[in-house]
């Protein structure tokens, strides 16, 4: 099934989506990958507030190439989600809405997706030029010193993703 939805998704929309559904997302998402996750996790461990309010929001595991003049962003495809698995259950517990990346997740993450009725989408790995066309605005909102690994707030329009782990915590990948 193919759907167009506003992101962040409502709880009902998340629970209605099933593995294999094609979704075009329009709205706001945040980027964070390895280094930003490590910092956010350290923040949580110290009992400090996160630099962004993750409640209900979607994180896209992505570090873009630099934008040429006149463009909002450079190449912008997903990175391998598995490297964030160590941090993901905690973020879901704190209210993270969902994730966009590529590749398999650990049973711990899948279980956390099920318990929190969250969702995990994949974007097509290695299609960074194509995907950049669906990003209309990009702004660094935290950890600027991390360069490509900074947290960015993105405005997306018809950003193409596929449901690879739905709210039941089962994975599409064999």
């Amino acid at each position: 099934m193919t759907k167009s939805l506003n992101v962040p998704l409502t709880q009902q929309e998340k629970e209605e989506l099933k593995n294999g559904d094609f979704v075009y997302l329009t709205g706001t998402i945040y980027t964070a990958r390895d280094a930003a996750h490590k910092r956010m996790f350290e923040c949580i461990e110290r009992g400090e507030e996160l630099p962004i309010d993750i409640k209900g929001q979607f994180i896209y595991y992505m570090g873009p190439s630099p934008a040429r003049e006149g463009r909002p962003i450079g190449s912008a495809g997903p990175t391998t989600s598995g490297r964030m698995d160590k941090y993901t259950p905690k973020l879901l517990e704190l209210g993270l809405g969902g994730m966009i990346g590529k590749g398999k997740r650990t049973p711990e993450v899948l279980n956390a997706i099920k318990e929190n009725k969250s969702i995990y989408f994949a974007a097509i790995g290695g299609a960074g030029a194509l995907l950049s066309k669906a990003i209309i605005k990009s702004e660094v909102v935290a950890y600027d010193d991390l360069g490509t690994e900074a947290i960015r707030k993105l405005e997306v329009k018809d950003f193409p993703v596929i449901v690879v782990a739905d709210s039941t915590g089962t994975m599409l990948y064999k």
């Binding site: 190439s65 190449s75 990175t79 290695g126 960074g128 194509l130």
Partner: peptide, 17 residues
């Protein structure tokens, strides 16, 4: 399609260069 866009618009094929 991604390869075509990359070449035409000079956007790296993949962000992981």
């Amino acid at each position: 399609e991604n390869i075509k866009i990359a070449k035409a618009d000079m956007i790296p094929i993949c962000q992981d260069t």
